[in-house]
Design a protein around this nucleic acid. Structure first.
Length: 405
DNA sequence: AATGGCTGCCC
DNA sequence: ATTCTGC
DNA sequence: GCAGAATGGGCAGCCATT
C-alpha cells in the first residue's frame, strides 16, 4: 500500500505527460478511485490546485519569497544556482524537485499529513513561524512530493488540469451525469465535498446554503456586435459592462453578506447592508459594486482604495460612495433559479427591488437589441456614458452566458 | 514610529 | 483583468 | 472556439527590520 501523497504525485506526473484531456481525466479518476474517500476528497481539492476548498477564506500566506528561503536553506545551494534552476523551469515546484536532495526517498507522506500542515500554516502568524513549518514539511517530502506541495502552495499545478477536468473525473469515477457534478460543485464551491456527494450517489441532494457563496457565471469577451448575434441569433439583452467589483449578496432575515468573485466576504461596504436587509424575503443577488458619485460611475482606481480594509474609514466612506447594481437573481425564498430563464429571473429581480430601489441601489437597465445596428448604437452610447462596454445575454438562457464588446 | 518587503486580492 | 497557445 | 497557461497593474494589511 503506497502512501497517498506518492500516489497523488505519480498521477500528477502522468497527467502532466499527456496533452489528451480524456487521458488526464482517466488518470485522475483512477487515482481518486484508488483512495479512501477522505483522501480522495483532499486529492480532488489538490488536483484543482487549491490548498483549501474554494469557499474558504483561509490562506497560507506562503509565497515566492518564503519558498525561495526554504529551498535555499534545505538545498544549501547559493542563490545564483537557484536562480539558474528557476529560470530553466519558470516554476518554483520544478526548481524544488531538481534542487532538493534526491537521497530523500520520502514516500511516507499522506494527503492527510499535507492537509494538516496546510491547516497549520494557515493558522500560524508571521513569516518566521511559517518558514519553519514549511521547511519541516519539505524535509519529509521526496523531491517529487516537494514539487507538487509547492505547486499547490502557489495555487497552480500547471499540468494542464483545472477544476473543470476534476469534475469530469469525479463524474467518470462514479458514473454520474457531469451536469449533476458541475451543479453540485457550483453549489458547494468545494470539489472535495462534491466528490463525497458523488461517492454517496447524493449529488442531487447538494443543497444551497445561504451565506456560503455559490459559483459565479463568468463572461466571455466578444469583439464586435456581429459576434454577439452569432451567439444569440434571435435577440440579445444588453447591459452596461460595469467597471467595479463583482459581488454576490446573500440575505435572510436581518442578515446580509456580500461575497467577492473569489468567494471572500466583502466587509468593506457597510453602507450597502441596510438597504439589502430591508428588502423582503431570502435571496441571493448577483451584481456589481461601483464607486458612484453624482449619477456617474467613478474609475475603478477609486473603488480599489476601499478594498482590503479591515476597518471602514468614515472619511473614505463619504469620499468614495458606492452603489450596488443588481443584474441577476440566483435564489429567492427556497427557489434556486440557476435553471430559470433569464427573463424570468430579471422579472423577479425587478419585482424584488421595486420601482424605487433605495439609496445605493440600482437595477441594471437591460435593453433588448434585435439588430446589429441597434446593438452598435447601444454600445457607442455606453462608451459615451463612461462605461467599459456592454454585457450581452440571451433572454432564454438558464445560465447567463455573457459577452462584452 | 517609520520603512520596506511580502502576500493576497481586486481588475 | 488580458493575452497567448495548443488542440 | 475552448481551456489552460502566462502575465500585469494597483491597492491595503501584516510582519520584520531599523
Amino acid at each position: 500500500m503506497i502512501a497517498s501523497m506518492r500516489r497523488f504525485v505519480e498521477t500528477c506526473e502522468a497527467v502532466s505527460a499527456t496533452t489528451k484531456k480524456t487521458e488526464k481525466v482517466r488518470l485522475v479518476s483512477k487515482c481518486l478511485r484508488s483512495l479512501p474517500v477522505d483522501d480522495a476528497a483532499r486529492a480532488a481539492i489538490f488536483f484543482a490546485g487549491h490548498a483549501f476548498p474554494r469557499w474558504e477564506e483561509r490562506t497560507l500566506a506562503v509565497g515566492g519569497s518564503l519558498i525561495w528561503q526554504a529551498l535555499e536553506a534545505l538545498s544549501g545551494l547559493p542563490p545564483e544556482r537557484l536562480s539558474q534552476t528557476y529560470r530553466r523551469y519558470g516554476d518554483a515546484g520544478g526548481m524544488a524537485e531538481e534542487v532538493l536532495s534526491s537521497d530523500n526517498p520520502g514516500g511516507e507522506l499522506t494527503l492527510r499529513d499535507v492537509a494538516a500542515t496546510f491547516e497549520n500554516l494557515a493558522a500560524l502568524r508571521g513569516s518566521t513561524q511559517k518558514l519553519e513549518a514549511f521547511k519541516q514539511l519539505l524535509r519529509r517530502a521526496s523531491p517529487g512530493e516537494a514539487k507538487y506541495i509547492i505547486k499547490i502552495v502557489t495555487g497552480d499545478l500547471r499540468i494542464g488540469l483545472k477544476e473543470n477536468l476534476v469534475e469530469e473525473a469525479i463524474a467518470q469515477t462514479f458514473l454520474r451525469p457531469l451536469d449533476l457534478v458541475r451543479r453540485a460543485n457550483m453549489i458547494t464551491a468545494d470539489v472535495g465535498a462534491t466528490f463525497r456527494l458523488a461517492a454517496a450517489d447524493d449529488l442531487a441532494a447538494a443543497r444551497l446554503r445561504l451565506f456560503h457563496p455559490i459559483g459565479f457565471m463568468l463572461a466571455t469577451p466578444a469583439e464586435t456586435p456581429a459576434e454577439v448575434f452569432e451567439s444569440f441569433p434571435a435577440d440579445a439583452l444588453v447591459e452596461d459592462k460595469y467597471d467595479g467589483i463583482r459581488a454576490q449578496a446573500h440575505k435572510s432575515g436581518r442578515t446580509v453578506k456580500l461575497f467577492s468573485r473569489t468567494m471572500d466576504e466583502l466587509l468593506e461596504f457597510p453602507e450597502l447592508f441596510e438597504g439589502l436587509a430591508a428588502l423582503p424575503g431570502e435571496f441571493i443577488l448577483d451584481g456589481e459594486i461601483l464607486a458612484w458619485r453624482d449619477a456617474h460611475p467613478l474609475p475603478f482606481r477609486e473603488l480599489q482604495r476601499r478594498l482590503g480594509r479591515k476597518h471602514s474609514d468614515m472619511w473614505l466612506l463619504l469620499d468614495i460612495p458606492v452603489n450596488f447594481v443588481a443584474f441577476d437573481l440566483l435564489y429567492q425564498d427556497g427557489d434556486l433559479l440557476l435553471d430559470t430563464p433569464l427573463r424570468e429571473r430579471q422579472r423577479r429581480l425587478e419585482q424584488l427591488l421595486g420601482p424605487a430601489p433605495g439609496a445605493h441601489f440600482q437595477l441594471a437597465g437591460s435593453q433588448r437589441c434585435q439588430t446589429v445596428e441597434e446593438l452598435r448604437e447601444t454600445f457607442e452610447n455606453a462608451i459615451l456614458r463612461g462605461q467599459e462596454g456592454l454585457m450581452a445575454k440571451e433572454p432564454g438562457s438558464p445560465s447567463p452566458l455573457s459577452t462584452s464588446s
